[in-house]
């Protein structure tokens, strides 16, 4: 599904290399987790994949189902099926949540040459999905993320993901700021989307989330590289012993 080869990224404005040769392949139907100390480059990777400005790819390539991703604009990547659940979802005063999502859904459909979703169908769908995530109707009407609690913002990210049905879901610390019940809700939302033709890249610091969203593969990122890859047990090892042993072994 998603193939990242030897990805090198520096900041556009500064001479600062952040990703230093990331290699990673997420197969369709699989959940890959990325863990790693603060500042190792996890969010940067997720931003570069989703096409944010401000980074320069100095080497390497990224493909989604064989198609070059790095050539595409952010909106084209979204239409191609990449979705990022932000570590820090952005507040947009004055733009209603509903208007925003409907515009997004229909823009993606249009980009793929599909027919727009009618207002009625959209409403029905979003109400059902919102209910599953316990997002009340009032929140849908409010401006995007404005005045939402930390946990509500994260649930709103998952709602967007559920509405947009991307092929490749990247979740950046979606568990941070969630209470125990919300964590379950969000995980159920994610698990409901798990399917044969969809890949997941889940960035997290904690095993907790992975108890709910069971990963197939776990990677450790450090200083801009994937330094170790293993099965679900690797996350347990991090949870129990921290990164010291793992890093001592590989660096």
């Amino acid at each position: 599904m998603l193939e990242i080869k030897n990805l090198h990224v520096k900041l556009e404005e500064e001479d600062k290399q952040i990703l230093k040769g990331v290699n990673l392949t997420v197969e369709a139907g699989k959940v890959h987790a990325i863990m790693g100390p603060n500042g190792s480059g996890k969010s940067t990777l997720s931003y570069v994949l989703s096409g944010r400005d401000g980074y320069e790819v100095t080497d390497g390539e990224v493909t989604l189902e064989g198609e070059d991703v790095l050539e595409l604009e952010a909106e084209e990547r979204a239409a191609a099926g990449i979705f990022l659940a932000f570590q820090y979802p952005v507040e947009i005063p004055g733009v209603g949540n509903m208007t925003f999502l409907r515009t997004a859904v229909n823009a993606q459909r249009k980009a793929r040459g599909e027919e727009e979703m009618s207002a009625a169908d959209f409403l029905k769908l979003i109400r059902a999905k919102a209910k599953e995530l316990k997002i009340d109707a009032d929140m849908l009407k409010r401006p995007v993320n404005v005045g939402f609690s930390g946990g509500e913002k994260k649930r709103n990210e998952i709602l967007q993901m559920a509405m947009l049905e991307p092929k490749m879901c990247i979740l950046d610390e979606t568990d941070s700021g969630l209470d125990v019940d919300a964590m379950k809700l969000v995980s159920e939302g994610v698990n409901a989307l798990r399917s044969e033709d969809r890949g997941f890249l889940v960035i997290t610091h904690y095993q907790r989330l992975l108890d709910h969203i069971k990963p197939d593969v776990v990677h450790i990122m450090y200083d801009g590289r994937i330094v170790k890859t293993g099965g679900p047990d690797l996350a347990l090892e991090v949870e129990n012993n921290g990164y010291a042993d793992i890093l001592a072994e590989v660096v």
């Binding site: 096409g51 952010a74 979204a78 952005v90 823009a107 967007q160």
Partner: peptide, 13 residues
């Protein structure tokens, strides 16, 4: 930031 957020959901610039 807001512009990127919207674009990342598929809304053209």
């Amino acid at each position: 930031e807001a512009l990127f957020y919207l674009r990342s959901r598929g809304v053209p610039a």
